[in-house]
């Protein structure tokens, strides 16, 4: 990495942009991601949101944010960002508002909005080279509606619409959509995956992205104790496990060129990650589905076998 002001956790800025008291679940991974991401971004931010769990951060008459917030619609937050960005630009250009009134425009959505209903809008915004940030807090299902499968749900996971049954022992049998690659295929200036467990990595990535004009896209693993069926105290631990098992690679792509920012020295077996979550419980009980677990392990191994060390 180039010169960075983030060497250790001590370098994380103290200023909080997100105060306590949201109505999100205790131990919400997405909330932690947003809190840290905002610290990395700094002030003068407007968040543009699509329907999802984090929509409930701000409900009238309360908001936890000290910065601006605009809920748009489930399918079109990037277009909402387009309108705000373009309006600020032209108002500044015409001298109608002072340049100090400028804001960083940041889309924040869940994986349902990012991978499914809002994908067209995202593709459009990236294609138009919109100068914005996109933070997808990926909890791998439609959490806010009670945890139904999204196209970001991993294979083998149980959700309320992909329950494991004797006919469907895997639960969800579809693969997780590779949003990183979909975004990267547009060749935007910056795309990265992040994890709330790897905070310095996250801060360095946001820091780096601030140098680029155009789309800066972040895909954040966001453990959801409620939907994943895990201990609320273990959100960060789960995120770390996802990284250490290689299930959640930490990487970035600058104008399409991929670099892995962290390569687990010795990948832990995926089983360590799967077995502590109720959404994968059917792979272990009543009888262990060795085949399914091996298949998930194989996919991870194949991924890393192609990663240039």
């Amino acid at each position: 990495m180039s010169i960075t002001k983030y060497k250790t956790l001590k370098d994380v800025p103290r200023e909080e942009f997100l105060v306590s008291g949201t109505s999100l679940c205790a131990g919400c991974g997405a909330l932690l991601v947003i809190r840290l991401f905002h610290k990395a971004l700094g002030d003068n931010v407007v968040w543009v949101n699509a329907a999802g769990c984090v929509t409930l951060m701000a409900t009238f008459p309360y908001t936890p944010l000290k910065s601006s917030w605009f809920y748009t619609a489930m399918g079109s937050a990037p277009a909402g960002a387009q309108g705000i960005r373009d309006a600020l630009d032209i108002l500044i250009k015409k001298g109608k508002i002072d340049p100090t009134e400028n804001l960083k425009v940041v889309v924040v959505t869940g994986d349902g909005a990012a991978s499914d209903i809002g994908l067209q809008s995202t593709s459009g915004a990236i294609h138009r080279n919109l100068d914005f940030f996109y933070l997808c807090v990926d909890n791998e299902a439609y959490g806010n509606t009670g945890f139904q499968a999204s196209s970001s749900s991993p294979i083998g996971s149980g959700t309320t619409t992909t329950r494991p049954t004797h006919l469907y022992p895997m639960g969800n049998f579809l693969p997780k959509k590779d949003l990183f690659e979909i975004w990267r295929s547009h060749r935007p200036p910056y795309v990265a995956t992040i994890s709330p467990s790897h905070v310095v990595d996250m801060f360095r990535k946001v820091e780096k992205s601030l140098n680029f004009k155009g789309p800066k896209l972040f895909l954040a693993l966001s453990p959801c104790p409620t939907g994943w069926g895990a201990e609320v105290s273990e959100s960060v631990k789960l995120a770390r496990l996802a990284v250490e098992t290689g299930i959640w690679p930490l990487k970035e792509a600058v104008y399409g060129e991929v670099t892995h920012t962290y390569i687990p020295p010795k990948r832990r077996p995926v089983e360590d990650y799967l077995k502590v979550q109720r959404r994968f419980a059917h792979l272990f009980k009543p009888v262990k589905n060795e085949g399914a677990i091996a298949e998930i392990q194989k996919q991870v191994d194949e991924y890393w076998s192609k990663v240039v060390h």
């Binding site: 543009v48 605009f70 748009t72 619609a73 399918g75 079109s76 937050a77 990037p78 277009a79 909402g80 960002a81 387009q82 309108g83 705000i84 373009d86 309006a87 600020l88 630009d89 032209i90 108002l91 015409k94 109608k96 508002i97 067209q120 809008s121 593709s123 459009g124 294609h127 138009r128």
Partner: peptide
């Protein structure tokens, strides 16, 4: 002296129109 922005659908068109107006642009 205006910004012309061709977007990818009417849903995005109206979203961008609305947020721009809320930001203070005449749309």
């Amino acid at each position: 002296d205006a910004t012309f922005m061709q977007v990818e659908s009417e849903h995005s068109l109206l979203t961008a129109a609305g947020t721009a107006a809320a930001t203070g642009a005449r749309v």
